[in-house]
Amino acid sequence: MSLAVGCRARPGKARDNKTGSWRVFKPVFGKEKCTLCGLCMTLCPEGCVHETEEGFITPDYTYCKGCGICAQECPGEAIEMKQEEK
């Protein structure tokens, strides 16, 4: 690895770091109770919760650290934290 002058890095290169491996509890999004309010998308510190093409909201498990903020703050209690099976 050669050092660039001034320690430059490509924008968003942190994506190489797959933080999903940190997870102990996994947020499981229930489609029935979800009202698509989008609060989980706003409050996720990783910014990994997004809307799929089918119109459901789901986290990117490659990066989700399983902090549980989405489950805690969901007004419809549509998100459940489940122990990760590895």
């Binding site: 942190a14 770091n17 510190p45 549980g68």
Partner: peptide
Amino acid sequence: FDCGHRACGGC
């Protein structure tokens, strides 16, 4: 501010 940063979960 993209995914993959090393903050604690719930930062």
